[in-house]
């Protein structure tokens, strides 16, 4: 038998979590490959045994865009900031679709991975994070559709398009925050599964997807600032179509994103180790 050299300090100490113990980022870093594999699995499996496959990534925003164009673009005659309404609507729908899919997938991810969570240890935050990341592939595909539509309507992007990666990062972080929080809540309260679709529907109407925020009466506009998605989606339109950025709105959205994320991760960390007992 080989002699085994043991470290002087324990590698792992297992004891009851104190109230203030947080998610261990060192641990998450150590498990980064698992994050990759779970994301890869979600991407691979997502459209298995579907007839249309990845086309769903495009169909979802496309049909929403068509419906919005019929009901709001023509009938309501919405002021779309000088951009043809279909392009305007799709510019909001592409990030919105990512966001709504990401929080749905993350929110249900922990409960859906119950058999993993009750059998193997890994930082649980990886599960909702992978669910969110897997949505990025669809997001990318939807951008292709948007590009095609922009060419068709002769909407030419400016240098502002360089802000796009920052906005994608912001959307991803906000989705992660919201999704993680719902995922933790879902473990204990399965109400989340029913509440989430409903909430997403309502949320859509206050996220500047259908109307630009400028269409909202001035005295109510501050309310939109409380919703980071509104600022973020307006930001996408500015970056894509060369419209002026609303910097204060984006700044507030970024601040709220960070707050949401910190709060969600804190909440998640507090209940993380009891998941296996209550899931």
């Amino acid at each position: 038998m080989e002699s085994v050299r043991l470290p002087a300090e324990p590698l792992v100490v297992i004891q009851p979590t104190s109230r203030w113990s947080l998610v261990s980022f060192k641990d998450i870093w150590a498990y980064r490959e698992l994050l990759f594999f779970l994301t890869w699995r979600d991407v691979k499996v997502r459209y298995k045994q579907t007839a249309l496959g990845a086309a769903w990534a495009i169909l979802q925003p496309l049909f929403m865009m068509i419906i919005f164009t019929i009901f709001f673009g023509r009938i309501a005659g919405v002021a779309s900031a000088g951009i043809p309404y279909p392009v305007f609507a799709l510019g909001g729908l592409v990030p919105w679709t990512f966001f709504s899919n990401a929080i749905t997938a993350s929110g249900n991810s922990l409960v859906g991975s119950a058999n993993l969570i009750t059998k193997v240890y890994f930082p649980r935050l990886i599960v909702p994070a992978a669910a969110m990341l897997a949505g990025l592939v669809d997001f990318l595909l939807a951008f292709v559709l948007l590009g095609v539509l922009m060419v068709y309507y002769h909407v030419v992007p400016t240098m502002q398009i360089l802000f796009l990666p920052v906005l994608v990062l912001l959307t991803a972080l906000f989705s992660l925050g919201v999704g993680t929080w719902f995922a933790a809540l879902n473990v204990k309260y399965r109400d989340v599964r029913f509440a989430l679709p409903f909430l997403i529907q309502l949320w859509l109407f206050v996220s500047s997807v259908i109307l630009p925020s400028s269409a909202i009466p001035q005295k109510w506009r501050w309310l939109l600032l409380l919703n980071p998605m509104s600022g973020i989606i307006e930001g996408y339109r500015s970056a894509l179509f060369g419209l002026p950025f609303d910097w204060p709105a984006l700044g507030i959205a970024s601040g709220l994103t960070i707050l949401t994320l910190v709060y969600a991760i804190y909440t998640f960390g507090r209940v993380e180790r009891s998941f296996a007992d209550i899931i």
Binding site: L6, V13, S274
Partner: peptide, 23 residues
């Protein structure tokens, strides 16, 4: 085993592991 493999945590007490665990 679930405590040792960190799937669930103990209510009281302490476990020290001086090596990587797989279960």
């Amino acid at each position: 085993l679930k405590i040792l493999s960190r799937i669930t945590e103990p209510t009281v007490g302490r476990v020290e592991l001086f090596g990587r665990v797989a279960s």
